[in-house]
């Protein structure tokens, strides 16, 4: 693992934006460092304007770092060939409205040097993956928000990149669309594709990511494995199937008889509102 090249390496990245000639520059990203290993799903979380998108843009070479360095699979982000291995879905993307879903994927595929039967097969595979086979010949201008995000994800994957960067992938999408996108992210993870996403929807990040970074006012304030960061170290959770009140009472008794231990809470676990909603509409 130590000798493996990181999928993403951001080292002491700072980015200043000059908003007015006389005013001092605005620091959007301040000395941010992070490392994402191949196969990880990394979530960068933070409030609006905290520097998440600027960090991603610096990684894609869309903005130049004021200081620091970004690399993708060991290649400097400012070099065009670093993007051979990257797929990117920007926040609230609009694609060319005059193209159909299939034409959109063909356009991006050709930009990546794909063509012929290989591209046809790839388009068919991706349309199936993002569940847009029925809308392949419809113009993108008529797509819903969720469909746009999914065609966006498909274009990001067109050249089979090893890294996918997603900027607020579920923002503004209804619960069904949001669920589909999160399922797709988990499919990508299962296929070994590295995912770097940013969002301010914390529950969704928690569901799909194995590593997270918390960015606030341009600075990385916490970073690490999600399990390590959110685990309450001095508590243990037991979930029992078909346990009656007597069993709970016996467990409570056992706990109270153990020096230093105390029962914090018993009760029925709750489903999420999202799960309830999805079950109700199916």
């Amino acid at each position: 693992m130590a000798s493996e090249i990181s999928a993403v390496e951001i080292s002491h990245l700072s980015k200043d934006f000059r908003t007015h000639l006389r005013k001092p520059a605005l620091r959007a990203v301040d000395d941010v460092s992070l490392r994402i290993m191949p196969g990880e799903v990394y979530g960068l979380i933070g409030p609006n304007g905290s520097g998440k998108s600027t960090t991603m843009k610096a990684l894609l070479g869309l903005v130049a770092p004021t200081s620091g360095k970004c690399s993708i699979f060991g290649k400097d982000s400012m070099q065009v060939d670093s993007r051979n291995d990257v797929g990117f879905l920007p926040e609230n993307p609009y694609f060319y409205k005059h193209l159909t879903g299939q034409e959109t994927l063909r356009f991006y595929g050709k930009l990546c040097g794909l063509g012929g039967r290989e591209l046809d097969a790839r388009i068919a595979e991706l349309l199936k993956l993002v569940d847009l086979e029925g809308a392949r010949d419809r113009r993108v201008g008529g797509y819903s928000k969720g469909m746009l995000q999914r065609i966006g994800l498909a274009q990001a994957l067109i050249q089979e990149p090893r890294l996918v960067i997603l900027d607020e992938p579920t923002a503004g999408v209804d619960p069904v669309g949001s669920r589909q996108i999160r399922d797709l992210i988990m499919t990508l993870r299962d296929r070994g594709i590295t995912v770097f996403l940013c969002s301010h929807l914390l529950e969704q990040v928690q569901e799909v990511c194995d590593h997270v970074g918390i960015i606030f006012q341009g600075r990385m304030i916490k970073e690490g494995r999600l399990e390590d960061l959110i685990a309450i170290e001095d508590q243990t959770e037991i979930v029992i199937q078909n346990g009656d009140e007597q069993l709970v009472a016996r467990i409570s008794e056992l706990v109270s008889g153990t020096p230093g231990a105390s029962l914090v809470r018993t009760g029925k676990p709750r489903t999420t509102l999202e799960r309830l909603f999805l079950q109700s509409i199916r």
Binding site: K57, L60, G61, L62, V80, D81, R83, N84, V86, G87, F88, L89, P90, E91, N92, P93, Y94, F95, Y96, Y108, L111, C112, G113, G152, Q155, A156, Q159, I165
Partner: peptide
């Protein structure tokens, strides 16, 4: 404006 430029320049397109 439509951010389609991002998706193009994020590909290996000089």
């Amino acid at each position: 404006e439509d951010r389609t430029l991002y998706t193009i320049l994020a590909k290996p397109v000089p």
